[in-house]
Design a protein around this nucleic acid. Sequence first.
DNA 1: GCGATTTGACCCCA
DNA 2: TGGGGTCAAATCGC
Length: 300
Amino acid sequence: MKKPLVHENPRKNRVIKELVDGKRFATQLQTLLQQPIADHGPVSADELLLKIWRSFSEAITELNTWGLAFQIEEVDQADSGDRKSKDSTSELKKKKDKQGGKDRRGCYKRRKTSGSWMRESATVEDGCAWRKYGQKNILNSKYPRCYFRCTHKYDQDCRATKQVQIIQENPIIYHTTYFGQHACNSLKITKHEMMIISQSNHNPMVEMESPPFEIKPKLPNSDAIHDSTVKEEDQESNKVQRDDVSNDVSSTMDSNLWQNFAHDSIMADHSSYFERIISSDMEDFDKFSDFHFDEATENL
DNA sequence: GCGATTTGACCCCA
DNA sequence: TGGGGTCAAATCGC
């Protein structure tokens, strides 16, 4: 089977470019670190690290989007047969409702871990508008897992979802797993905010931020126990944050989360954080097993 | 009234 | 077979 030329796919070119850039920045960083600090030029190690982060995250995001496109294509093909599938759009939802009275709840294809990426931080806030659609107690886990989908799932056919679970208390750490790529415009972050993020010295692992939702253990009469005052305050404060972010629509970050990753990682543990994300995303490379980087980079 | 959250039901798949 | 992901009716809050 004839291998397609690299130049035929702009998305592939973009991935290659980001990876090549990342490699170049990593080489620069290596050179920089081998020199005495006094000999360091105008570019700092932190800046280079941020650039490396950006390049790899952009590449990962691109691959995720790409992988999702493959998945959608596969599902579409499956739908042409008698395979059951979920419908995301309201149009299809209405169509589904007309098909007999049988309850279709729980009728879905279990997602694969590939195409996902993880984040561990003291905050669950990521600038996106999420809507909680479920919560489950997980076996051998002290805390329940919360399920979120993008608020714009139906109006903009955005398939991004995330799962949030507390993995540690004191300090509280949320483990967030993201699935799919935002197809909506829910994330708005300004360049100014980016500068603040990248230049910030405060540690998010120390700064405790109230979540925009409440992870509560499933207890009998939990409604009676529930402190609504606290929740409302949390919701209000988070509403303000979201409003602040969404007020400026001049700069839309479509391929987004790298800022959060870079921010958290620089403030926390660089290498382990990178490994965590890469370990989940490397599975995507299986889809591109026929991809030859040496051959591709020669064509750049 | 509308959007968000809660929670039991449902079913896929490891 | 049962854990886990999603749906959707009921409920809540503004």
